[in-house]
Design a protein around this nucleic acid. Structure first.
Lengths: 137, 137
DNA sequence: CGGCATCCCACGGGATACTG
DNA sequence: CAGTATCCCGTGGGATGCCG
């Protein structure tokens, strides 16, 4: 039965078969998380906090180009998701420190792996992009 | 003092090491890539193509909820960046197959690592989120 | 100093309709 | 079947200003 449906039965390339089923439902959590931290600033902030806690203004100074609005919003999001802690010292002027939680620290590992990939393969991507754009320009 | 080598290779102990070179400049490529593939569909598509080439309609059928507009656009982007190839068979009706390039295949590993992290830690994140939301409701 | 509030614009992305 | 074109709305995110 089923005429015309070629049923592509996965002739696996040189990759070893992983026990991870890449179904749509099993990859959705990964996709969600990626979208969550794939915003403009989250990863940068997590990486900045890798070396230890930083206060708001220091964080803002180190991440060039971020608006204090987005710094606040992004930190709130990270705090909400249990990736950073927010510690307020009610002095005058007030002092607020942000620090990675254990969860936040654990996130560094896969993110670093992706960062390494990005560092290694960015030239290839840029070249591919240039070639693609050049083909039709 | 300026950081000498933008190394992202950390030994990753549970404790934050003292000399991490996570400068803003060294992490920006990672952030860029993350934003690039951190969109709504890219990772899902890459994962779907892990098992081998798929044609457009099959891809659309497997990724539930995607519009053909976004499928086309996302595939174009992935093709542009050298992550997938697009092969047209000019029959009637036409047939177009998409397949991961070597670059696309190599991306699977770090993305899978992140996916594993997401799978493992999503409960913790959801719990933290619920706790955070409950504190001020 | 840290951080809401507001305005405002650009872009992502869904729905739909049309073409080769 | 695969793709393009159009419409349209929700959101992301910058700039600015005010308040503890």
């Amino acid at each position: 039965m089923a005429v015309g449906t070629p049923q592509v039965t996965a002739p696996l390339p040189p990759e070893p078969p992983e026990r991870l089923a890449h179904s749509s439902e099993s990859c959705r959590p990964a996709s969600e998380i990626l979208m969550r931290i794939g915003d403009k600033w989250s990863v940068l902030i997590v990486m900045m906090l890798s070396g230890g806690p930083l206060r708001f203004s220091e964080l803002k100074r180190r991440i060039d180009g971020i608006s204090q609005r987005m710094l606040t919003l992004t930190l709130r999001g990270l705090e909400r998701d249990g990736l950073v802690t927010r510690t307020v010292t009610p002095t005058i002027p007030p002092r607020v420190d942000y620090e990675l939680t254990a969860l936040g620290v654990s996130l560094r590992e896969p993110v670093n792996a992706l960062g390494q990939w990005a560092f290694d393969n960015r030239p290839a991507m840029l070249a591919a992009r240039a070639a693609y754009d050049g083909r039709e320009a």
